[in-house]
């Protein structure tokens, strides 16, 4: 299994604040990597740097051994990086079906001329995508809401829709940003199963989460960030018992407070 993602000395400043500080990470193909850390530790910024929403100030990012530092977001997506957002970025006013169909945008090869003239190729592609999208909705179980406004779905269904949409581009690396936020226990269970299913199809996953039980259970390896720096990396048990990790979350101050 090769390395699919590698960062060396990845650093990002916001004004005077260092949000990501010299992070070195190596994720192997097919892994499920958990990324945890207290609030403000730089997890979201790290994800933003990987997919190109922010540009790093120092260091390099390698995807499939290719340096992608200066690639715009849509190019990185075309290369195989996909991402879901903590605050859902669904097209709320469009229908559920349209949300999925937009995901297939790039797999449709006819250009504007073909569409305007309505060549056979263009018509067939449109029909094909329609069928693929409907099929996908059936698989994830919301085909009865296909023509409803995406914003009218329940929160859990919206999450499901967003993840499914992210899969339409057949990504090699999927970044999940707090996918369990706002879900109840049974929905989290479904999410875990879905994540395994996606991983089994060969998709490498990096998941940022605050729900410890979920991350510990699902990750092959866990990376811990604190104040922008990587402070620990390893299997779930090692991380659980790591004093530096505990300190990061609970803080030294508590001891001092107790002492006083």
């Amino acid at each position: 299994m090769g390395t699919i993602l590698q960062t060396t000395n990845l650093t990002k400043f916001f004004g005077g604040l260092c949000a990501v500080d010299g992070v070195n990470i190596e994720v192997k193909e097919g892994e499920i990597r958990g990324l945890i850390g207290p609030n403000g530790s730089g997890k979201s910024t790290f994800l933003n740097l990987i997919c190109g929403i922010e540009n790093n100030d120092r260091g390099e990012i390698f995807f499939n051994n290719q340096e992608i530092n200066r690639e715009p977001i849509h190019n990185r997506a075309k290369m195989g990086i996909s991402r879901t957002f903590q605050t859902l970025e669904l097209f709320k006013e469009l229908t559920v079906l349209q949300n999925i169909m937009i995901g297939f945008h790039n797999s449709m090869k006819s250009n504007i001329l073909g569409i305007l003239v309505q060549t056979k190729k263009a018509l067939n592609e449109e029909k094909d995508i329609y069928e693929q999208s409907t099929e996908l909705l059936k698989i994830i179980g919301i085909s009865n809401r296909a023509n409803d406004r995406a914003g009218s779905l329940s929160y859990g269904q919206q999450r499901l829709l967003e993840i499914s949409r992210a899969l339409t581009t057949k990504p090699k690396l999927l970044l999940l940003d707090e996918p369990a936020a706002g879900l109840n226990l049974s929905e989290i269970n479904d999410l875990v199963n879905l994540t395994y299913k996606i991983n089994n199809q060969g998709v490498t996953i990096i998941i940022v989460e605050h729900r410890m039980e979920m991350i510990m259970k699902i990750s092959d390896l866990i990376t811990v960030l604190d104040e922008g720096k990587k402070i620990a990396e390893g299997k779930a048990d090692d991380i659980k018992n790591n004093p530096a990790v505990q300190e990061a979350y609970l803080g030294k101050k508590r001891e001092e407070y107790v002492r006083n």
Partner: peptide
């Protein structure tokens, strides 16, 4: 024809989330 094509869908989605469109590989 433009409205009911992939371009029409993507254009209408711009108002909703340019970020998501880019993340789907759309320029």
């Amino acid at each position: 024809r433009l409205e009911h094509s992939k371009y029409g869908r993507a254009l209408k989605a711009i108002k909703e989330s340019e970020l998501a469109l880019q993340m789907l590989g759309i320029n």
